[in-house]
């Protein structure tokens, strides 16, 4: 009947594993979990552990017996231990309650959608573009001059974008530190590698202010490039971004938004 690890050790291991995932793995693959949310995740994990423990009579018994023994002080050693536990647990509760209230000045971590669903069509410089209909960028159709277009895109980039997105296209331009959210890192697999060229066209032409509310347009420093660049120049810089980073544009026509994180 008693197979494997003692149940208390199992619970502890589950808890440690969960905390490891929340505080190390998640921040590593995406972004750190904001404080309040973190608390909820831990509480959820505790609930799951409780469900697991109470799932069968046997495991519940195994779990509760030592607690019961302690409460009833069944051995001589248990008596002083019970006194200690009875003093320490209320103090811990008190400490937790009061520090939680004095939580203080951590601003609520807003959840910003990084890649919202694009509009179905955009008006750029008086011309209407139905994004779904653009499966590849028009300049790619002009294959004979593609290299030239890319070269022009490079110039566009270094006249306009590198202050923020950086020489190395990692979002570390010399002005990047003034902005929050930070300029996108194009080398990262989480940005243009996940997007299509028509999506980029929308984002570049309309900039930060063109984002929907869930993507906090008021915070984004991304300029509205239709005010500065021609339509061709926008397609050229897009081609340059994919060329220099080595990423492939995603070719797809529907439901681009992945909800971000």
């Amino acid at each position: 009947m008693r197979r494997g690890l003692p149940i208390h050790l199992k619970c502890l291991l589950i808890l440690i594993a969960a905390i490891f995932v929340f505080s190390v793995v998640v921040p590593f693959v995406s972004a750190p979990i904001p404080g309040q949310l973190y608390g909820w995740y831990v509480i959820t994990t505790l609930c799951v552990i409780f469900l697991y423990v109470s799932s069968s009579e046997a495991s519940w018994e195994e779990f509760i017996t030592p607690v019961r023994n302690l409460l009833l002080a069944r051995t001589a050693l248990m008596k002083p231990l019970r006194i200690v536990v009875f003093i320490v647990v209320p103090l811990l509760c008190g400490w937790y309650f009061s520090t939680w209230a004095a939580g203080g000045a951590t601003p609520p971590g807003g959840l910003r959608v990084i890649h919202p669903t694009p509009p179905s069509s955009v008006n750029v410089q008086g011309k209407r573009f139905v994004l779904q209909d653009i499966s590849v960028s028009p300049i790619r159709e002009d294959e004979a001059h593609l290299a030239e277009h890319i070269e022009k895109g490079r110039v566009v980039y270094y006249e306009n974008c590198f202050f923020c997105h950086g020489d190395a296209l990692q979002g570390k331009g010399h002005f990047a530190k003034g902005f929050n959210p930070p300029p996108a890192d194009f080398q990262d697999t989480g940005t243009i590698a996940q997007l299509s060229e028509s999506y980029l066209f929308w984002r570049i032409a309309k900039g930060g202010p063109g984002l929907p509310g869930e993507s906090t347009p008021w915070d984004s420093a991304m300029p509205i490039w239709e005010d500065f660049l021609t339509e061709d120049e926008i397609w050229q810089v897009i081609a340059y971004l994919y060329e220099i980073t080595g990423h492939e544009p995603r070719v797809m026509d529907h439901g681009e938004g992945d909800g971000g994180h």
Partner: peptide
């Protein structure tokens, strides 16, 4: 107050 409430809760 919360400290006291916490201790009370524990007890």
């Amino acid at each position: 107050y919360l400290l006291l409430a916490g201790i009370g809760f524990g007890l």
